[in-house]
Amino acid sequence: MPPAVLVAGETLIDFLPERPGPLETVSGFERRPGGAPANVAVGLARLEEPVSLWTRVGDDPFGRYLTDVLAGYGLPETYVELDGDAQTSLAFVTHDENGDRTFSFYRDGTADTRMEPGRIDDDTLATTEWVHAGGVALSSGRSRDATLDLLERAAEQGCTVSFDPNARPELWRDEDTFERVSRQALEYTDVCKATVEELRALGCQGDSLEAVARNALEYGPHTVYLTRGSEGAMVVTNDDAREPDTLVEHDGYAVDVVDTTGAGDAFVAGLIAALRNGRPLAETLAFAGAVAATTTTETGAMTALPTRDAVESMLEANDAGD
Rank of each mutant, 00 (worst) to 15 (best):
Q157N: 12
L138Q: 08
V7H: 01
Y65I: 05
D112A: 14
D96A: 14
G72K: 10
E249H: 02
V311C: 12
G135D: 05
K193W: 00
T11S: 15
T260N: 00
G135N: 05
V40G: 07
T260F: 03
L305D: 11
R214L: 13
T296G: 12
T227C: 06
L151A: 08
L23G: 08
S143W: 00
L315V: 04
V258E: 06
L82V: 03
F163N: 06
E249T: 15
A167N: 12
T299S: 15
A317E: 15
A320L: 11
G229F: 13
G58R: 00
V224L: 10
A133Q: 12
M302N: 09
E187T: 13
A201N: 09
G58S: 06
T124D: 11
L16K: 00
L90N: 12
A320K: 13
S27M: 09
L281H: 05
S104I: 11
P169I: 03
I13W: 01
P306K: 03
D96W: 11
R180C: 03
G43R: 05
T294P: 02
W172K: 00
G109N: 08
V5T: 12
Q184A: 15
Y253C: 02
S139A: 15
A167V: 10
E49K: 11
L125Y: 09
A216K: 01
V7Q: 02
T261F: 01
E24S: 14
S139P: 01
A185I: 01
A292R: 11
P20E: 08
D174I: 05
R276Y: 04
P244N: 02
A293V: 11
A263E: 01
D14G: 07
G35S: 05
E298L: 12
A292D: 09
L315S: 10
N318G: 07
Y79I: 08
T177E: 15
A304N: 13
G84S: 14
S182K: 02
F178N: 01
D319F: 07
D174F: 07
S143N: 13
L281Q: 04
V311R: 10
G118I: 13
D68P: 00
G278E: 11
G141E: 09
A71I: 09
L53W: 10
T147M: 12
T55G: 08
T307A: 12
V136K: 01
A274T: 05
G21S: 13
L75C: 10
L75Y: 06
D164H: 09
V161G: 05
P280M: 04
V268M: 14
T127A: 14
E116H: 11
T110Q: 09
V311Y: 12
E197M: 10
S139H: 04
A241W: 01
N39A: 13
T113P: 05
D245P: 03
R173D: 05
G74C: 08
D14F: 07
A213S: 13
V212E: 07
V196Q: 15
G278L: 09
